[in-house]
């Protein structure tokens, strides 16, 4: 895929910012001994609320959920930021964030005990971030700017943009 210089920079900045955000989301949970995904899951509505309840009721599942979140976010964030295996990271991140969306979708008629920090109707920041991660998967930049460049076997010296 070829990008103009402006497009490359824009997409890279987007990747770095999303990476930064997910990285800190993960680390802030890792360093907080009291953090648990339980509170979020307990407030779950719609299709996945039963799944959420099962997870919360089972200490093993809850612990897995906590770890997947803490480490998943940290790893995905760091990889996007550094541009290492960034396409895989983008897909994993998109799935993770999409799960947050579907565990608590902002549909009308669904009331949540924790107020949202903005005003949302069907579309919220989780959905947008999941979508952004998908865009980062479809428009990869890490093979040009990022550690993935080291893995480029062919055409190494050629810049992949016009």
């Amino acid at each position: 895929m070829t990008y103009s210089r402006l497009r490359l920079i824009s997409l890279t900045v987007l990747r770095v910012l999303v990476g930064w955000h997910l990285l800190y989301e993960g680390i802030s949970k890792l360093i907080n001994p009291y953090w648990s995904s339980a509170a979020y899951l307990l407030d779950s509505k719609w299709l996945l609320s039963g799944v959420a309840e099962t997870i919360v009721a089972n200490p093993t599942l809850l612990s897995i959920s906590d770890n997947v979140n803490m480490w998943g976010l940290t790893l995905v964030g760091a990889l996007l930021l550094l541009g290492l295996f960034a396409r895989y990271a983008a897909v994993a991140g998109a799935v993770l964030v999409l799960l947050y969306y579907f565990f608590a979708p902002p549909f009308f008629g669904l009331e949540y005990s924790k107020p949202a920090e903005g005003s949302y109707l069907i579309v919220n920041k989780n959905l947008i971030e999941a979508c952004v991660l998908w865009v980062l998967y479809t428009f990869p930049t890490s093979h040009i700017i990022g550690l993935d460049r080291f893995f480029q076997v062919t055409n190494k010296s050629e810049d992949n943009y016009e």
């Binding site: 890279t12 990747r15 770095v16 930064w20 680390i27 760091a78 930021l81 990022g146 550690l147």
Partner: peptide, 20 residues
């Protein structure tokens, strides 16, 4: 240039670590 492009976002990671 090759190396610079590969490592271009590493300083951002450094900034992140310092901020953290």
């Amino acid at each position: 240039r090759e190396l610079l492009k590969s490592l271009a976002t590493v300083p951002v990671f450094g900034v992140f670590l310092i901020a953290l």
